[in-house]
Nucleic acid binder design. Structure first.
Lengths: 217, 217
DNA sequence: CGGGCCATTGACTTAGGTCAATCTGCGTGG
DNA sequence: CCACGCAGATTGACCTAAGTCAATGGCCCG
């Protein structure tokens, strides 16, 4: 059974978890901390192409390589399974295959939202979208249903530089936009690692997104 | 059997195939022509988030909605299956589920490459990457193995405006970059719908991509 | 107490966007 | 068969959002 083959691995903030092109020996799920997927151009410009929060999955049944780097953004603990036996499990259990497919489709949707952000949003819209996303995500993980956790401090899991790489900006622009949103009374930036959303509605207005807001599942 | 439930639909260039949020009644595969997936901000800025060429698949087992628009970029013919029976087939045939999963992962990889392009590449690199992608794709579909179909005219399946929406640029910038690449002797732009790659190596240099070039499968 | 490491802020540059004029075909109807 | 009109493409002049470069500030940790 799968339980028998799981193991835990920990990485310190900044450590590489997987390198692009390296043979993929395990699949994993994030237990705690934040990891990121990123791609690099030959001259060193980099772009994060995914953020892995707790419960997210790393790995691709049927692939032996990945073509991005996986890095620990904060200290991270993973729950790992050897790839071969895991694939066996996937083949034997249709239900698991279907679940993985859904995960892949969710990631695809997230990737496409991010494409819109990267291709068309202004710096201010990018920051607003990023904060809104963090607010939604952290709300899910805490008080489910309590829709107004506004005023609570949002923890930023990354440095300005990493945020810039996620949003396709420079760290200076990220910093300036934080300051601007603060000056406009939309957020508060006390500690460098936390932001308080003072006016969520206004923050959402600033995202540029079509307001009819997606699927009401 | 699946054969019994397939039907063909055709759309003229510019026609909507599916609207965002609309209930998804069929899945389909592209028989001929080119379709695109796109997302729009509230003020009308749009970003293409995918291009569907012949043999590409539209649809997501387990989802009843999509949150992008699907539009016919050129005249398009689709081969459609009703969604419910198709999903039944997927559940009954593990092999099909696995194949779909691979398609989803391929799309995810393509989406991530595009994120790097949108977030970090210059206009010139974007155009070079776009042309290189078209060259690779059209080579696959024609003379397999003949690696130097250089000199052959590449057909552009879209207008400058659509290319701009795909690359996160404006149509003017697309036009200027075509002119610049032409002035540099890398391509030739005779007809507005076709481009001849005169120096593929140089074109690839201009993409900005890490030259060790991905996975040698 | 001191030395990194982030972050912020300012001054200046620039790639790409915007606005506007012109050009090029191409299909249509007289 | 021609001329008209229109949709797309090109080109130029100018503007601006964001990048670059550089100085300064705060904070944590040894």
């Amino acid at each position: 059974m799968l339980e028998d083959m799981k193991s835990y691995r920990s990485y310190a903030a900044g450590d590489a978890i997987l390198w692009r092109g390296e043979p993929l020996v395990f699949v994993a799920s994030v237990v705690s901390g934040v990891a990121s997927l990123s791609k690099t151009l030959e001259d060193g410009r980099t772009q994060m192409v995914g953020l892995l929060l707790p419960s997210d999955f790393i790995g691709r049944p049927g692939r032996t390589q990945i073509d991005f780097d996986v890095t620990a953004t904060t200290d991270v603990t993973l729950c790992c399974f050897a790839r071969r036996p895991f694939e066996q499990l996937v083949e034997d259990t249709p239900h698991v295959a279907q679940r993985l497919m859904e995960l892949a489709l969710d990631e695809l949707d997230a990737a496409r939202d991010w494409m819109l952000l990267l291709g068309r949003k202004t710096a201010r819209e990018k920051i607003a979208t990023f904060l809104d996303m963090l607010a939604r995500r952290s709300q899910l993980n805490t008080a489910k249903g309590d829709s107004s956790a506004i005023g609570a401090a949002l923890h930023l899991p990354m440095t300005r530089d990493q945020i810039a790489n996620y949003l396709g900006l420079t760290l200076e622009t990220v910093s300036r936009q934080f300051s601007a949103l603060k000056a406009d009374g939309i957020i508060d930036v006390s500690d460098r690692r936390s932001v308080t959303v003072k006016d969520l509605a206004r923050l959402q207005d600033e995202t540029g997104d079509d307001s009819d807001g997606g699927i009401l599942s």
